[in-house]
Design a protein around this nucleic acid. Structure first.
Lengths: 337, 337
DNA sequence: ATGAAAGCGCTAACAG
DNA sequence: CTGTTAGCGCTTTCAT
């Protein structure tokens, strides 16, 4: 049994008026007499008339749909972003069409095409890790569709953007360690060729510099996953006696080192303080609960949608592209003093 | 600059043929001469023609879009489900329109309406915690739209369903505890009026019964959040000396008890074994890593979409509604022997 | 104050 | 083999 919907034409027929009259009455067009207007409206309500969004979109050349391409849904940060986007978009009368690239370039291209085929009004995108080449995005942009990048932005495209201030987050984290008494701070870093690796490293370096603490490169380890921590445990343990603080580039590495240390008799934070980055669900259940930098995915999502809708609704307004920077904040818990 | 798309009409005009010819050529209609077909196809490719999905949907009365209503996106289980749905739907040529109810009944109703307005071909829904009344879903179903419930199903609606076998999961978990030597097993349970509370409790009870271990109700505590564990810590500690195993209704409570115990000198699993339920990201980073029951959200998502598409593509086939049961499996890690 | 007609982009009878 | 026509559901001139 196919769902059959009532149309304006149906109503017109049943009421003995023309479709145009029904259409106008429904949207309070001034030309329509109060009488017919009420007639139509009450009738429409009675038969539960609902406008067909498809027809509307086709007619108006506007879908009120926002297309999203995200690397992975199953990721606390990204799902927070999506949640923020959904909430705001929904509140503004837009719906979202969501695609995940699964960190796969080819799929990102297809996703983009699908969204374009559906004539979404605008695009929200965070690029996949395997994306090295940006023709697909270039083309989309050239065709004139509004687009905002978030988190994983693309430098060679001039668009609105929302990013977290990784530098500042790292600086705050490291400063916190310094201000609570640490002097020899180990940094577990992401590769320098990744933006987050670079920026967080630099924030760390800046904090040291601000406090006249010399930067010791032997205290910066390329080590950004739990697994890597585990495989580098020996090295970390040889370093341990000479350090009093650790800044991990993300929560999982921070928690992983903490565990390695604890298993070897170190007390956190009495012997060594630890700060992470991200504030996912694992931070709170760590033992002790992890002091970390909160990344505000939800807020980032809202901001991205805000930027996009603003552009959609200020038609031609040649506003310069904006880069909105979300400043993360420190969440003090128990792994630091 | 509005994105302007090339249409079939445009192509027809430029090639001096009729729109229908173009339409047919593009889809390899047998009536079209190979010559014109190639002409049209290469030209279409050159100008990057892309069919307008909106127009297509309107025409075909089929949107190839699946509507999803989920309580919360930011939740490991649900985001896994979404991911599974997205992947399969995408592979089958469908796109997804995703709404979150935020556990709010009113919003669930609106979400449903929005999806219906967009004429999604089918619905995937997991009901919100605050939903006590099902008229909106009843109406949708009566109107004939295919619908599959997953995880949080609604008993009074006769539809396809996908659920996890909570009873069996709990039975497996408890059995594992028993088989590794535990006899006095504490169960941290969800309220009995919730399905998961009831089913997991019963699975626990069944396992005991199968092994002729008497069920001691004083070892069943209504306690299903981390916070609750913390506020009941005293009581738990008085119970601790007499127990050798714990089955937590979810991972966070399991991890929380484990921590309370550890802080008080108990060794896990030497003194007490612990098993959780869910297998979210927190399970692996717990220390020691948590033995738990894997809930297979991704698989559930795929299954739900499979059921839905099957119904969409077997037009009238009056297949009886199916309830697909996902049997969770035990993931042995280090909190049990 | 209301209706007729055209058209958004596409497809599918029906002609020829 | 190709073109003409009508229509999916809706809005919006242009008439009346």
């Amino acid at each position: 049994m196919k769902p059959t919907h009532i149309t304006i034409k149906d109503i017109a027929k049943m009421l003995g008026v023309s479709p145009s009259t029904v259409s106008r009455a429904l949207k309070d067009h001034p030309d329509i007499s109060e009488e017919t207007r009420n007639l139509v409206k009450t009738f429409a309500e009675k038969v539960k008339y609902r406008p067909n969004a498809l027809a509307l979109s086709l007619r108006k050349q506007k879908t009120n749909t926002l297309g999203l391409i995200v690397p992975e849904i199953v990721h606390h940060f990204f799902s927070s972003v999506i949640s923020g986007m959904e909430d705001l978009a929904y509140g503004e009368g837009y719906t979202m069409m969501i695609c995940q690239s699964n960190e796969n370039f080819y799929r990102e291209v297809i996703n983009l095409q699908a969204l374009l085929d559906h004539r979404v009004d605008g695009l929200l995108v965070s690029i996949s890790k395997t994306t090295r080449e940006f023709n697909h995005l270039h083309n989309a942009l050239d065709s004139g569709i509004p687009m905002v990048f978030f988190d994983r932005i693309c430098d060679e495209l001039d668009t609105d953007r929302v990013i977290t201030d990784d530098f500042e987050g790292a600086r705050i984290a490291t400063t916190h360690l310094i201000e609570t008494g640490c002097r020899k701070i180990l940094h577990l870093a992401a590769p320098r060729h990744l933006l987050i690796g670079k920026n967080r490293y630099e924030g760390y370096a800046q904090a040291l510099k601000n406090h006249k603490i010399p930067l010791d490169e032997s205290l910066v380890l390329k080590c950004d996953t739990r697994e890597e921590v585990m495989s580098m445990r020996q090295h970390i343990l040889t370093l341990a006696p000479q350090i009093d603080g650790i800044f991990g580039v993300n929560d999982s590495t921070a928690i992983a080192v903490m565990q390695v240390l604890q298993e070897n008799g170190y007390r956190i934070p009495q012997d060594i303080s630890v700060v992470g980055f991200g504030d996912g669900p694992i931070a709170t259940i760590a033992s002790p609960p992890l002091t970390t930098v909160e990344q505000k995915g939800y807020e980032m999502g809202r901001e991205a949608v805000r930027l996009l809708i603003q552009r959609l609704e200020n038609p031609s307004a040649m506003i310069n592209n904006q880069t909105k920077i979300i400043t993360p904040s420190l969440v003090r818990r128990k792994t630091s003093r």
